[in-house]
Amino acid sequence: MSATASLADVSESRCLRAAEPHRRAMPASLRALEAEAIYVFREVVAEFERPVLLYSIGKDSSVLLHLARKAFAPGRLPFPLLHIATGWDFRDMLDFRDRTVAAHHLDLRVHTNPEGLAAGLKPWDGPRYADVMLTEALKQALDAGNFDAAFGGGRRDEEKSRAKERVLSFRDEQHRWDPRQQRPELWRHYNGRIRRGQRVRAFPLSNWTEADVWAYVHFESIPLVPLYFARERPVVERDGALIVVDDERLPLRPGEMARLERVRFRTLGCYPLTAASRSTATTVPEIVEETLRSRTSERAGRLVDADQAASMERKKAAGYF
């Protein structure tokens, strides 16, 4: 190993380097979370044959991807990205996804459930839509790619049943999660041994909070989908939720008229299942302030979770991320 080679490596890794003044100012607790996430990435890649990163284009996915690249810098990302497209993705998100993939030369796989597409399922068709277009689609893609480990951006602070999730979460042959049979997770000696057909979901952001994610985006200058930042957008108000009219596919109800409002998204899911909120925050610091002031939880904007009590647990047990 020559000294020249290692210097070249160092300069390449600077591509990932955040603005120095920001980096130096990063709180120790955030640096610890970063190191913890990198640890999870390396451990899973060392132990599994075919890992994949579930990339949903949102802020958590963006942070996840950034951390993954850091974990293997100065080398290339040793696994592909998987996007489950429903056909009801915001246009801004798809543009952003394609720009990100091109900028970092990533290997992106996109999958849409062909049966759901053929059946013409619409987001407003009830819980079946999420089951088919998200849960089933994900299982199809994981099976097709023979992926034995999937990284996800789930955080334990998001929701009550997520709080019970392990960092390395074991799934059976049918992708099911059994909260009563979880493997004990002792120290950080993650048990990566599985039998053929079984797999794991890995959550490097397990111990991050929403505020941590935003602060990290700030310090690392991580690019995000513009939908997170307030701008005038066409919206209709339905059952107390602001729905952005992203294109003509959203059927307006009688009497409804899209009007322009300054809104942003706190969380991004499927258009039009994700509600926007009125906001003037156009920068990350303004968003952090808004988040800190907020008295509602992040998932309050996800209409998909409100369909029944403990819906997340039910979906997770079935194989949802």
Partner: peptide, 16 residues
Amino acid sequence: MAASASASSAAFAQYL
């Protein structure tokens, strides 16, 4: 869209 350090408000600085 990236964050801009110059936009850091006093409240944000205090938070950090």
